[in-house]
């Protein structure tokens, strides 16, 4: 239920058994069915979700109802509407499950308590946020400066497992492309 979560923690900060038990007491285990929402835009994002099993995505919708995927989260990743989580303002993103999933939720109040009782958890959250920030910089650079074909090649080389598990139209949405454009690019790459 918490295997990957504690593996991820112990890779960054070595926890004692007591510290693990303290952290465990603040975690909310949750199962989601495929297509079930964890969060809908407009609500406050009350928790950060760590994926133990399955896949989730975060996306916004525009006025025409088109979905724009900002992030996927596979096993071992975290996902949230961070702005909403930190500020308590309504979320901009929807988060839902692309497969039946098992997640671990860390609410704001749980996080505050964990930080008080296990101070080195701060190091873990800093490392998580730094990692997410670096990935976001790379993604932004890729979007604003690379030709689409190279962007796709870069995407599948960095995230081969997402490319395998997520439908193509969602990858197109993540890349800011129409599905037919992505399909054309894939054919072009395949024919090389």
């Amino acid at each position: 239920m918490y295997e990957l979560f504690f593996k991820s923690l112990n890779e960054k900060i070595a926890l004692t058994k007591e510290e693990e038990e303290i952290i465990k007491s603040y975690l909310t285990p949750k199962k989601l069915r495929k297509k079930q929402y964890l969060l809908q835009a407009g609500d406050v994002c009350k928790a950060i979700a760590f994926v133990e099993k399955g896949t989730l995505r975060a996306y916004s919708t525009d006025e025409k109802g088109n979905e724009h995927i900002i992030q996927f989260a596979l096993e071992g990743w975290t996902i949230s509407d961070l702005y909403s989580f930190i500020t308590g303002e309504p979320a901009q993103y929807h988060i839902d499950a692309l497969e039946d999933s098992e997640i671990v939720l860390i609410t704001k109040s749980a996080q505050d308590e964990i930080l008080k009782r296990v101070p080195k958890y701060e190091t873990y959250t800093r490392m998580q946020l730094t990692g997410a920030y670096m990935a976001m910089q790379r993604r932004l650079t890729s979007i604003i400066s690379l030709p689409v074909e190279e962007r796709y090649i870069q995407f599948i080389s960095i995230y081969p497992d997402i490319a395998q598990r997520v439908p193509q139209h969602m990858i197109a949405s993540y890349m800011g492309l129409k599905p037919e454009t992505l399909s054309r690019i894939r054919k072009k790459i395949a024919s090389k």
Partner: peptide, 8 residues
Amino acid sequence: IREVANQK
């Protein structure tokens, strides 16, 4: 249910 009712 104790384990899965944690924090709920």
